[in-house]
Design a protein around this nucleic acid. Sequence first.
DNA 1: TAGCTCTTTACGGTTTCCCGTAAAATGATG
DNA 2: CATCATTTTACGGGAAACCGTAAAGAGCTA
Lengths: 222, 222
Amino acid sequence: MFKKVLIAEDHETINYSIQKTLEELEIPHDSRNYVYYCDDAIKRLKKALAEGKPYELLITDLSFEDDIPGQQITTGQELIATARAIQPDLKILIFSIENRASVAQSLFKELKIDAFVPKARRDAQDLKLAVETVYNGKKHVSVNLKKDLEQQHHEFNEFDIEVVSLLSQGVLQKDVPIYLQQKNIKPSGLSSVEKRLSIIKTKLNIFSNEQLIAYCKDKKII
Amino acid sequence: MFKKVLIAEDHETINYSIQKTLEELEIPHDSRNYVYYCDDAIKRLKKALAEGKPYELLITDLSFEDDIPGQQITTGQELIATARAIQPDLKILIFSIENRASVAQSLFKELKIDAFVPKARRDAQDLKLAVETVYNGKKHVSVNLKKDLEQQHHEFNEFDIEVVSLLSQGVLQKDVPIYLQQKNIKPSGLSSVEKRLSIIKTKLNIFSNEQLIAYCKDKKII
DNA sequence: TAGCTCTTTACGGTTTCCCGTAAAATGATG
DNA sequence: CATCATTTTACGGGAAACCGTAAAGAGCTA
């Protein structure tokens, strides 16, 4: 079993629970470290690597409260990306309230994570199994993930997100080009914005900008 | 200290954590009961009351997975309302991921809860203190709640929510009256819809329907 | 550079939204 | 029932969104 594990999770109670689960896996207490801030996690990873005793597994949440200003890293996604840059062979397990298969899938693809366990019923067993599976060199995709089987799908690119985001902030569609130019985003014509929105809505079977914003909020695209 | 406590929380790991916290409060193990479904909570409450040994405190989450169909009650809000109907003197503590003061406040007002503890950093201590405070007959409002201090505010009534909800579902503004009539909602004219939306947007300093939908999604109004 | 394709932008007509005004309906009061 | 106040609806003009078409531009190949 793993000899050195780092847990990044800002919720104290959940931290307790992970401890308890790891105890059951007989990972000794002094080989586990718990941090409440992403920045601390990175410090630990660097230090351990420098000392020649790198961590083997990182268990992390996705969202962290930013209750103390001035933190470099404030999300699990950034933490994972940074951790991977420092130590490419590190195994990474996400333990999060997020439970949609589509979201998990994109994390496997984009961040090359090794396991995704949603906080849910029976999540302790789930977590235990996940750690074991990852230890055996395999990926673990939890069975508790909700498969949102929308046949229609659209992959939002940077441009799409920018436009939708501007709309959600109250920028009128006709004024979007102005903001796009300010940000030096390549197609900035109003026609391009209109066409793109039209394509997205058609693909997703969406009838209005309002519904599109609701969709993007639900999917955490914005 | 409390002699009989019921915990309704579908996340196994968090259930563990609450156990640990209650242990520290020296609430004996055999006087605590843990359930994973709202319906089970109600059954327990009724049974205990019938046996003349009613629960004194209910600790519950707000959101529950509906992984098993056919449950009567699926949210913490419903659970609390039902519990209060059965046993008015029951103390109720919400332990939830929700951390906005405005949301907590409305729960105190509408459901007459006794304590609200958000899952956050130091939530174990927070929970402990909350239980003690409630035991002493007082209300506990966690310090960890985020005060969303928007000077502008608008109280969304049933009509507002219906309209915004329809828009978010892709109904064109001009067609909203049709749906309102179908639901026998009182003002159904297009002008009324327009006027109401205009008032809301002015109050909230919002410039477009898109931004309004984003706002409502963020505030969990829809 | 000519020729081709693909992307981006410009333009115009139709629909929808927005907002002010006024008429109609509703309701309370004496 | 008459009067007044409030709510709801109707209407109309200007702004914005929508959508198709076509022109302009960018990139590639020969």
